[in-house]
């Protein structure tokens, strides 16, 4: 049985490269603790995995000191979306039975990775869990965790979760144990597996700027009278709005995004 915890290195906005101010989110602390408890429950080793730069080794060492057996860092060539992060993790831990995640990272995370990860692993999901209890000691594929989720309006949902599953937890769900001194010393020297992957750029990076119409050459207006010339220049009263006619098209999402970008460029919102 494999237990995995996904951790995110969150850097300080003011000093992004400074490892002193990077950390994992409280929710990740909680996930790490529960992953370790899950490992004890299932008599399985726990793997900690992160997608991030070399500074992220810092939190992996913290995880190793707390009792994780294997630490993997996936390095990507550029910033990636939540779906890419999930795909990258799923590729490394395809056989995971229990995957633990924090529900949101504190750097305005959207909490989407756990859901993408469940999809990528074809696993069950229990997201935003606030309370957990581990069932009887599990066999290789039978073992139930009872998870309580927060719903709108103060309601709760209680799930019985079986492996394979992705569970994301809130920061207050569990309090991370403190690493022992010897474990801390060992972790400081432990090896961290680094996997480099190239992820395709799927989204066109774009910058939207203030409206600045393109310069256009205008021919001198036709018309016998001054009024006719003014009307033809401004389009008032007549065949106005031909250029700004509303168009409705049906496209798949990727093409639709491309079309929106093209239109924005034509209207002068992009260069």
């Amino acid at each position: 049985m494999t237990v995995v915890v996904c951790l995110k290195w969150v850097h300080d906005a003011a000093q992004p490269d400074d490892v002193r101010f990077g950390a994992m989110s409280p929710a990740d602390h909680s996930a790490l603790e529960l992953a370790l408890q899950c490992g004890e429950w299932a008599h399985a080793d726990v793997t900690a995995i992160t997608v991030g730069p070399a500074q992220a080794d810092h939190i992996l060492r913290d995880a190793l000191a707390c009792g994780v057996r294997r630490a993997v860092r996936i390095e990507t060539s550029h910033a990636v979306s939540g779906a890419d992060v999930a795909a990258a993790i799923a590729a490394v831990v395809a056989d995971a039975h229990w995957v633990w995640c924090g529900d949101y990272s504190i750097d305005n995370g959207s909490g989407s990775v756990p859901a993408f990860l469940a999809a990528a692993l074809a696993a069950r999901q229990a997201l935003g869990v606030i309370h957990l209890s581990f069932g009887d000691a599990p066999t290789i594929d039978a073992g139930v965790i009872e998870a309580t989720r927060r719903l709108d309006g103060g309601r709760r949902e209680v799930l019985e979760v079986r492996a394979p599953a992705v569970v994301s937890v809130e920061g207050a769900t569990a309090h991370l144990r403190r690493a022992g001194l010897t474990a801390l010393r060992t972790a400081a020297a432990a090896a961290i597996e680094v996997i480099r992957i190239a992820t395709p750029t799927r989204v066109d990076d774009c910058v939207v700027q203030q409206y600045r119409p393109r310069a256009r050459e205008l021919a001198g207006p036709d018309g016998v009278s001054a009024l006719a010339r003014v009307l033809s220049l401004t389009g008032a009263g007549g065949a106005r709005g031909a250029a700004s006619a509303r168009r409705t098209v049906v496209l798949d999402p990727l093409d639709a995004a491309g079309r929106i970008l093209t239109e924005l460029r034509e209207w002068g919102y992009r260069t």
């Binding site: 403190r178 690493a179 022992g180 001194l181 010897t182 801390l184």
Partner: peptide
Amino acid sequence: RTDRPAGDL
């Protein structure tokens, strides 16, 4: 003695 578990060195 430190404040960590098994924290004597």
